[in-house]
Design a protein around this nucleic acid. Structure first.
Lengths: 123, 123
DNA sequence: ATTAATAACAGTAATCATTACTATTTATTT
DNA sequence: AAATAAATAGTAATGATTACTGTTATTAAT
């Protein structure tokens, strides 16, 4: 992966964002640094940065992919009413901790990523 | 929500599926029961069933929404190579349990769903 | 430093999962 | 049995993402 000022800008924007922006939001923000950057370039670089494990994607309720530059281990809270994604850095042992924090937890999902049995052996 | 044989068929297909099918796969399976059902009907009913909390959606690596009829509390394992989504019903305390099971865990994500502080108060 | 090779780019067109629309059918209520 | 409106089949539209193409910029080798 060759260096480019476009990719640097995309990464900088994402890492200095406190929210979980979509590709088009990142595009708008990067345009303030590189006004003639193209949307395709933003998409391509987000894909590359994700493949390299430098950024992550966040589940959301709209159909768009949301990105995150903060790799620290944390939990996401997804509000079903306003659709806001919140970072929760303290790991609550029980959902009751969320209640004390002001959240009302309805359900929880955990996903592990990696290689399954078959793919682990076939390489 | 009025009853319909189309919605019953969609739910039956999903609840008797062992995988995590997408809308179009569910469409193909339901067509064996109701040959002239339309894809839009499948989408609408999946949406309704999800809104009612009767089915859930599963994160995946393609761009499609995957559905699940099994509401039992469990974890998903997403293989980055073959993209297969596996249900894991035993809750491993540590990723090492996965290793013993044959999986190679690379990362983990947890999401909580519900109402955030603001939305909890504004009702 | 020049040049060669090619990754990355801007701009635009194409893709395709999902949603919206419309006239018709069907489940419920009166 | 008639009235009401939710649900449907079929089709058109949407829009996030990807693919394509000719050009530019980065890296490595001479």
């Amino acid at each position: 992966m060759r260096s480019s000022k476009q990719r640097d800008a995309v990464l900088n924007v994402l890492q200095s964002s406190c929210d979980h922006p979509t590709a088009d939001v990142i595009y708008e923000r990067v345009k303030e640094i590189i006004p003639n950057i193209s949307l395709g370039t933003v998409y391509r670089n987000l894909g590359q940065l994700h493949d390299e494990g430098i950024i992550t994607v966040v589940e959301s309720s709209d159909k768009k992919v949301h990105y995150e530059g903060n790799l620290e281990d944390h939990i996401h809270f997804l509000c079903k009413k306003c659709d806001v994604i919140t970072d929760v850095f303290c790991k609550p042992e029980t959902p009751s901790v969320f209640n004390e924090m002001g959240y009302e937890v309805e359900k929880q999902k955990t996903v592990y990523y990696g290689l399954c049995k078959a793919c682990r052996n076939n390489i």
